[in-house]
Design a protein around this nucleic acid. Sequence first.
DNA 1: GCACTGGATGTTT
DNA 2: AAACATCCAGTGC
Length: 148
Amino acid sequence: MQGRLYSYRGFTIEVVYKSGRIAQIRVLDRRPAGLPGLPQNLRVDISDFTPFERAVMGKLMEVPPGRVVTYGMLASAAGYPGAARAVGRVMAKNPYAVVVPCHRVVRSDLHPGSYAYGTGVKRRLLLAEGVRFNGDRISRKHIHRFKV
DNA sequence: GCACTGGATGTTT
DNA sequence: AAACATCCAGTGC
């Protein structure tokens, strides 16, 4: 698997194509040397996912850089209150890092929580997007409120 | 406040 | 039936 390399806020992003469609987007913990910026118009295909997964991923894509949501908040906003842990399962399998911004989903105690590419990468990605920390916890002002 | 524990939880495979 | 990137209430500092 080889893909196109892009730059996103100090990280290298690899977009892997399979038969003309985006198969995976991953984060490489490496400085992007002279790479183009990550395109805004990348179209990811979520039609093969379950209704629950589509609802969660779709809602998550509303969260902008510099904001975070908790697993439980995202579950409720997607229409599945109480499914915080199931949201964690979706995030763990998310093939489209950064475009489906699973690094912006954090624990209810505002610790960043786990990440497929390492907790350090998650923390530094959030920092690069403008999220401030108090020690190892995210400050409350960055919590995103979904529109009703 | 902090750290830890045990149990409940929803969805997928 | 098992797995899990959680959550909450309880306990003891």
